[in-house]
Protein backbone atom coordinates (compact mmCIF):
# COMPACT_ATOMS: atom_id res chain seq x y z
CA UNK A 1 0.00 0.00 0.00
CA UNK A 2 2.72 2.43 1.00
CA UNK A 3 4.64 1.29 -2.02
CA UNK A 4 1.77 2.15 -4.37
CA UNK A 5 1.32 5.44 -2.63
CA UNK A 6 4.97 6.32 -3.09
CA UNK A 7 5.00 5.14 -6.67
CA UNK A 8 2.01 7.24 -7.51
CA UNK A 9 3.58 10.39 -6.19
CA UNK A 10 7.10 9.88 -7.42
CA UNK A 11 6.05 8.92 -10.91
CA UNK A 12 7.90 5.66 -10.57
CA UNK A 13 5.35 4.05 -12.79
CA UNK A 14 6.12 6.31 -15.73
CA UNK A 15 7.89 3.48 -17.55
CA UNK A 16 4.61 1.55 -17.55
CA UNK A 17 2.57 4.50 -18.64
CA UNK A 18 2.80 3.91 -22.38
CA UNK A 19 1.40 0.37 -22.18
CA UNK A 20 -1.37 1.41 -19.84
CA UNK A 21 -2.20 4.34 -22.04
CA UNK A 22 -2.45 2.15 -25.12
CA UNK A 23 -4.68 -0.31 -23.22
CA UNK A 24 -7.09 2.42 -22.16
CA UNK A 25 -7.24 3.97 -25.62
CA UNK A 26 -7.86 0.64 -27.35
CA UNK A 27 -10.71 -0.13 -24.96
CA UNK A 28 -12.28 3.30 -24.97
CA UNK A 29 -12.33 4.08 -28.69
CA UNK A 30 -14.90 1.41 -29.66
CA UNK A 31 -16.85 2.18 -26.50
CA UNK A 32 -17.14 5.86 -27.25
CA UNK A 33 -17.99 5.19 -30.88
CA UNK A 34 -20.70 2.75 -29.83
CA UNK A 35 -22.26 5.11 -27.33
CA UNK A 36 -22.11 8.01 -29.79
CA UNK A 37 -23.85 6.03 -32.54
CA UNK A 38 -26.25 3.80 -30.60
CA UNK A 39 -27.00 5.82 -27.47
CA UNK A 40 -26.58 9.53 -28.21
CA UNK A 41 -27.21 10.05 -31.92
CA UNK A 42 -30.64 8.32 -31.75
CA UNK A 43 -31.81 10.81 -29.14
CA UNK A 44 -31.20 13.71 -31.53
CA UNK A 45 -32.59 11.67 -34.41
CA UNK A 46 -35.70 10.93 -32.37
CA UNK A 47 -36.17 14.62 -31.65
CA UNK A 48 -35.71 15.32 -35.38
CA UNK A 49 -38.41 12.73 -36.18
CA UNK A 50 -40.75 14.28 -33.63
CA UNK A 51 -40.50 17.53 -35.63
CA UNK A 52 -41.84 15.83 -38.75
CA UNK A 53 -44.96 14.16 -39.94
CA UNK A 54 -43.00 10.96 -40.34
CA UNK A 55 -44.45 7.86 -41.89
CA UNK A 56 -42.56 4.71 -42.71
CA UNK A 57 -44.27 4.38 -46.05
CA UNK A 58 -44.28 7.30 -48.41
CA UNK A 59 -41.12 9.26 -48.99
CA UNK A 60 -42.39 12.65 -47.98
CA UNK A 61 -41.99 13.60 -44.34
CA UNK A 62 -42.93 17.26 -44.05
CA UNK A 63 -41.44 19.37 -41.28
CA UNK A 64 -44.12 20.40 -38.82
CA UNK A 65 -42.15 21.97 -35.96
CA UNK A 66 -43.76 21.43 -32.59
CA UNK A 67 -47.14 20.50 -34.07
CA UNK A 68 -46.84 16.91 -32.84
CA UNK A 69 -46.41 18.18 -29.30
CA UNK A 70 -49.29 20.62 -29.69
CA UNK A 71 -51.48 17.76 -30.92
CA UNK A 72 -50.61 15.76 -27.80
CA UNK A 73 -51.63 18.65 -25.57
CA UNK A 74 -55.07 18.65 -27.22
CA UNK A 75 -55.49 14.88 -27.45
CA UNK A 76 -57.92 13.51 -24.87
CA UNK A 77 -56.69 9.96 -25.55
CA UNK A 78 -53.17 11.04 -24.59
CA UNK A 79 -54.44 12.41 -21.27
CA UNK A 80 -56.19 9.13 -20.67
CA UNK A 81 -52.96 7.27 -21.47
CA UNK A 82 -51.03 9.47 -19.03
CA UNK A 83 -53.64 8.85 -16.34
CA UNK A 84 -53.47 5.08 -16.91
CA UNK A 85 -49.68 5.19 -16.81
CA UNK A 86 -49.68 7.05 -13.51
CA UNK A 87 -52.38 4.80 -12.04
CA UNK A 88 -50.37 1.68 -12.91
CA UNK A 89 -47.08 3.23 -11.83
CA UNK A 90 -48.07 4.57 -8.43
CA UNK A 91 -50.48 1.81 -7.38
CA UNK A 92 -48.09 -0.89 -8.56
CA UNK A 93 -44.98 0.65 -7.00
CA UNK A 94 -46.44 1.46 -3.60
CA UNK A 95 -48.42 -1.76 -3.18
CA UNK A 96 -45.50 -3.80 -4.46
CA UNK A 97 -43.02 -2.07 -2.15
CA UNK A 98 -45.36 -2.62 0.79
CA UNK A 99 -45.93 -6.33 0.12
CA UNK A 100 -42.23 -6.94 -0.45
CA UNK A 101 -41.36 -5.13 2.77
CA UNK A 102 -43.71 -7.35 4.77
CA UNK A 103 -42.29 -10.49 3.13
CA UNK A 104 -38.71 -9.33 3.71
CA UNK A 105 -39.37 -8.51 7.38
CA UNK A 106 -40.82 -11.91 8.15
CA UNK A 107 -38.38 -13.76 5.92
CA UNK A 108 -35.33 -12.12 7.47
CA UNK A 109 -35.31 -13.97 10.82
CA UNK A 110 -35.85 -17.37 9.19
CA UNK A 111 -32.89 -19.69 8.84
CA UNK A 112 -34.31 -23.06 7.84
CA UNK A 113 -35.86 -23.13 4.41
CA UNK A 114 -35.07 -19.50 3.71
CA UNK A 115 -33.22 -20.30 0.48
CA UNK A 116 -36.17 -22.33 -0.79
CA UNK A 117 -38.61 -19.56 0.14
CA UNK A 118 -36.49 -16.91 -1.59
CA UNK A 119 -36.31 -19.10 -4.65
CA UNK A 120 -40.10 -19.53 -4.73
CA UNK A 121 -40.68 -15.79 -4.46
CA UNK A 122 -38.04 -15.30 -7.14
CA UNK A 123 -39.58 -17.72 -9.67
CA UNK A 124 -41.77 -15.11 -11.43
CA UNK A 125 -38.79 -12.74 -11.71
CA UNK A 126 -37.01 -15.31 -13.85
CA UNK A 127 -40.05 -16.00 -16.00
CA UNK A 128 -40.54 -13.95 -19.12
CA UNK A 129 -43.44 -11.54 -18.72
CA UNK A 130 -44.86 -12.83 -22.00
CA UNK A 131 -45.16 -16.32 -20.53
CA UNK A 132 -46.52 -15.19 -17.16
CA UNK A 133 -49.03 -12.89 -18.84
CA UNK A 134 -50.19 -15.87 -20.91
CA UNK A 135 -50.80 -17.88 -17.71
CA UNK A 136 -52.54 -15.00 -15.93
CA UNK A 137 -54.79 -14.32 -18.87
CA UNK A 138 -55.90 -17.94 -18.68
CA UNK A 139 -56.40 -17.84 -14.90
CA UNK A 140 -58.45 -14.63 -15.20
CA UNK A 141 -60.58 -15.93 -18.07
CA UNK A 142 -64.21 -15.11 -17.31
CA UNK A 143 -65.98 -18.46 -17.76
CA UNK A 144 -63.33 -21.14 -17.31
CA UNK A 145 -60.53 -19.26 -15.53
CA UNK A 146 -59.27 -20.64 -12.23
CA UNK A 147 -60.02 -17.49 -10.23
CA UNK A 148 -63.67 -17.25 -11.21
CA UNK A 149 -64.15 -20.99 -10.77
CA UNK A 150 -62.77 -20.75 -7.23
CA UNK A 151 -64.89 -17.68 -6.52
CA UNK A 152 -68.02 -19.46 -7.70
CA UNK A 153 -67.46 -22.03 -4.95
CA UNK A 154 -68.10 -19.27 -2.40
CA UNK A 155 -71.01 -17.99 -4.46
CA UNK A 156 -69.45 -15.01 -6.20
CA UNK A 157 -70.65 -14.36 -9.74
CA UNK A 158 -67.98 -14.52 -12.46
CA UNK A 159 -66.11 -11.24 -12.84
CA UNK A 160 -64.88 -10.39 -16.37
CA UNK A 161 -61.49 -9.37 -15.00
CA UNK A 162 -59.77 -8.38 -18.22
CA UNK A 163 -62.90 -7.27 -20.07
CA UNK A 164 -63.99 -4.77 -17.45
CA UNK A 165 -62.83 -1.16 -17.44
CA UNK A 166 -62.83 -1.30 -13.63
CA UNK A 167 -60.94 -4.55 -13.12
CA UNK A 168 -58.54 -4.77 -16.05
CA UNK A 169 -55.96 -2.35 -14.66
CA UNK A 170 -56.03 -3.74 -11.10
CA UNK A 171 -55.57 -7.24 -12.57
CA UNK A 172 -52.50 -6.09 -14.47
CA UNK A 173 -51.14 -4.32 -11.39
CA UNK A 174 -51.58 -7.44 -9.24
CA UNK A 175 -49.81 -9.53 -11.85
CA UNK A 176 -46.98 -6.99 -11.90
CA UNK A 177 -46.61 -7.19 -8.12
CA UNK A 178 -46.54 -10.99 -8.29
CA UNK A 179 -43.87 -10.74 -10.95
CA UNK A 180 -41.61 -8.26 -9.16
CA UNK A 181 -41.94 -9.05 -5.46
CA UNK A 182 -39.04 -11.52 -5.42
CA UNK A 183 -36.55 -8.98 -6.67
CA UNK A 184 -37.60 -6.25 -4.25
CA UNK A 185 -37.53 -8.69 -1.33
CA UNK A 186 -33.88 -9.43 -2.07
CA UNK A 187 -33.03 -5.73 -2.11
CA UNK A 188 -34.77 -5.31 1.26
CA UNK A 189 -33.01 -8.35 2.70
CA UNK A 190 -29.67 -6.87 1.68
CA UNK A 191 -30.69 -3.65 3.44
CA UNK A 192 -31.80 -5.54 6.57
CA UNK A 193 -28.44 -7.31 6.71
CA UNK A 194 -26.77 -3.90 6.95
CA UNK A 195 -28.52 -2.97 10.22
CA UNK A 196 -26.17 -3.65 13.16
CA UNK A 197 -27.48 -6.25 15.62
CA UNK A 198 -26.31 -4.19 18.60
CA UNK A 199 -29.17 -1.76 18.06
CA UNK A 200 -31.74 -4.48 18.61
CA UNK A 201 -29.91 -5.94 21.58
CA UNK A 202 -29.69 -2.55 23.26
CA UNK A 203 -33.38 -1.86 22.65
CA UNK A 204 -34.37 -5.29 23.94
CA UNK A 205 -32.46 -4.77 27.15
CA UNK A 206 -34.52 -1.57 27.54
CA UNK A 207 -37.65 -3.72 27.17
CA UNK A 208 -38.74 -2.81 23.66
CA UNK A 209 -41.35 -5.04 22.04
CA UNK A 210 -40.79 -6.50 18.61
CA UNK A 211 -43.34 -4.10 17.12
CA UNK A 212 -41.40 -1.24 18.65
CA UNK A 213 -38.21 -2.74 17.26
CA UNK A 214 -39.72 -2.85 13.79
CA UNK A 215 -41.16 0.67 13.93
CA UNK A 216 -38.39 2.46 15.79
CA UNK A 217 -35.27 0.72 14.51
CA UNK A 218 -35.88 -1.35 11.38
CA UNK A 219 -38.06 1.04 9.41
CA UNK A 220 -36.08 4.25 10.05
CA UNK A 221 -32.81 2.51 9.22
CA UNK A 222 -34.35 0.90 6.17
CA UNK A 223 -35.68 4.23 4.90
CA UNK A 224 -32.96 4.76 2.28
CA UNK A 225 -33.63 1.31 0.85
CA UNK A 226 -37.39 1.89 0.84
CA UNK A 227 -37.06 5.19 -0.94
CA UNK A 228 -34.62 3.62 -3.42
CA UNK A 229 -37.21 0.94 -4.18
CA UNK A 230 -40.02 3.50 -4.50
CA UNK A 231 -38.15 5.95 -6.69
CA UNK A 232 -36.66 3.38 -9.05
CA UNK A 233 -40.08 1.73 -9.15
CA UNK A 234 -41.81 4.96 -10.16
CA UNK A 235 -39.14 5.82 -12.74
CA UNK A 236 -39.31 2.33 -14.22
CA UNK A 237 -43.10 2.31 -14.04
CA UNK A 238 -43.54 5.22 -16.43
CA UNK A 239 -41.85 3.35 -19.25
CA UNK A 240 -43.00 -0.12 -18.18
CA UNK A 241 -45.96 -2.40 -18.56
CA UNK A 242 -45.66 -3.01 -22.26
CA UNK A 243 -45.30 -6.80 -22.29
CA UNK A 244 -48.03 -7.59 -19.76
CA UNK A 245 -50.57 -5.25 -21.34
CA UNK A 246 -49.68 -6.24 -24.90
CA UNK A 247 -50.41 -9.85 -24.00
CA UNK A 248 -53.36 -9.51 -21.62
CA UNK A 249 -55.58 -6.70 -22.86
CA UNK A 250 -53.85 -5.01 -25.78
CA UNK A 251 -54.69 -1.71 -24.05
CA UNK A 252 -58.41 -2.36 -23.76
CA UNK A 253 -61.19 -2.48 -22.83
CA UNK A 254 -61.98 1.03 -24.08
CA UNK A 255 -58.32 2.04 -23.68
CA UNK A 256 -58.57 1.56 -19.93
CA UNK A 257 -55.19 -0.21 -19.77
CA UNK A 258 -53.49 1.72 -22.57
CA UNK A 259 -50.24 2.95 -21.03
CA UNK A 260 -47.55 5.14 -22.55
CA UNK A 261 -45.19 2.35 -23.63
CA UNK A 262 -47.98 0.53 -25.46
CA UNK A 263 -49.32 3.76 -26.95
CA UNK A 264 -45.90 4.66 -28.37
CA UNK A 265 -45.50 1.20 -29.89
CA UNK A 266 -49.02 1.29 -31.29
CA UNK A 267 -48.60 4.71 -32.88
CA UNK A 268 -45.15 3.96 -34.28
CA UNK A 269 -45.54 0.42 -35.56
CA UNK A 270 -49.26 -0.25 -35.99
CA UNK A 271 -50.58 3.12 -37.12
CA UNK A 272 -47.21 4.25 -38.54
CA UNK A 273 -47.35 7.74 -37.05
CA UNK A 274 -43.67 7.81 -36.19
CA UNK A 275 -43.44 11.58 -35.71
CA UNK A 276 -46.32 11.62 -33.27
CA UNK A 277 -44.93 8.55 -31.46
CA UNK A 278 -41.51 10.20 -31.17
CA UNK A 279 -43.04 13.25 -29.57
CA UNK A 280 -44.66 10.96 -26.98
CA UNK A 281 -41.36 9.24 -26.31
CA UNK A 282 -39.88 12.67 -25.62
CA UNK A 283 -42.62 13.45 -23.13
CA UNK A 284 -41.74 10.15 -21.44
CA UNK A 285 -38.06 11.08 -21.55
CA UNK A 286 -38.79 14.43 -19.92
CA UNK A 287 -40.80 12.84 -17.10
CA UNK A 288 -38.11 10.26 -16.39
CA UNK A 289 -35.39 12.92 -16.49
CA UNK A 290 -37.23 15.17 -14.03
CA UNK A 291 -37.91 12.26 -11.66
CA UNK A 292 -34.26 11.24 -11.79
CA UNK A 293 -33.10 14.77 -10.99
CA UNK A 294 -35.56 14.89 -8.10
CA UNK A 295 -34.11 11.62 -6.88
CA UNK A 296 -30.58 13.03 -7.00
CA UNK A 297 -31.73 16.05 -5.04
CA UNK A 298 -33.71 14.10 -2.45
CA UNK A 299 -31.28 11.33 -1.93
CA UNK A 300 -27.61 11.87 -2.50
CA UNK A 301 -26.99 8.50 -4.05
CA UNK A 302 -23.85 7.00 -2.66
CA UNK A 303 -22.29 5.91 -5.91
CA UNK A 304 -19.12 4.78 -4.23
CA UNK A 305 -21.00 2.50 -1.83
Amino acid sequence: MIQTFVQRFTGNRSTLRAAEHRFIVIALIPTILFYAIVKFYPIFFSFFISMHEWSLFGNVSPFVGFDNYALLAKDSLFYKVMWNTMYRTFAGTFLGAFCSLIVALILNPIKRGSILLRLIYFLPVMTSVIASATIWKWMLQTRFGLLNQLLSVVGIQPVPWLQSTTWAMPSIIVMGIWGGIGFTVIIYLAGLKGIPRDYYEAAEIDGASSIQLALKITLPLLKPVVSFVLITGVIGGFSGGFQAIYMMTGGGPLDSTRVLALHIYDYAFQRMFMGQASSMSFVLFAIVLILTLVQFKLQRVDWEL
Partner: peptide, 24 residues
Protein backbone atom coordinates in the same frame (compact mmCIF):
# COMPACT_ATOMS: atom_id res chain seq x y z
CA UNK B 1 -16.53 12.61 -16.97
CA UNK B 2 -16.52 9.80 -19.56
CA UNK B 3 -17.83 7.34 -17.00
CA UNK B 4 -20.71 9.55 -15.95
CA UNK B 5 -21.62 10.39 -19.54
CA UNK B 6 -21.87 6.67 -20.33
CA UNK B 7 -23.72 6.05 -17.07
CA UNK B 8 -26.26 8.78 -17.83
CA UNK B 9 -27.70 6.69 -20.69
CA UNK B 10 -28.94 4.29 -18.01
CA UNK B 11 -31.94 6.47 -17.24
CA UNK B 12 -33.13 6.84 -20.82
CA UNK B 13 -36.18 4.64 -21.41
CA UNK B 14 -35.90 2.21 -24.31
CA UNK B 15 -39.03 3.72 -25.88
CA UNK B 16 -36.94 6.78 -26.76
CA UNK B 17 -34.62 4.56 -28.81
CA UNK B 18 -37.26 2.35 -30.35
CA UNK B 19 -38.13 4.49 -33.37
CA UNK B 20 -34.72 5.99 -34.28
CA UNK B 21 -32.91 2.68 -33.77
CA UNK B 22 -35.46 0.91 -35.92
CA UNK B 23 -35.08 3.45 -38.72
CA UNK B 24 -31.29 3.24 -38.46
Amino acid sequence: IIFYILLSTWIIPFEVYLIPLYLM
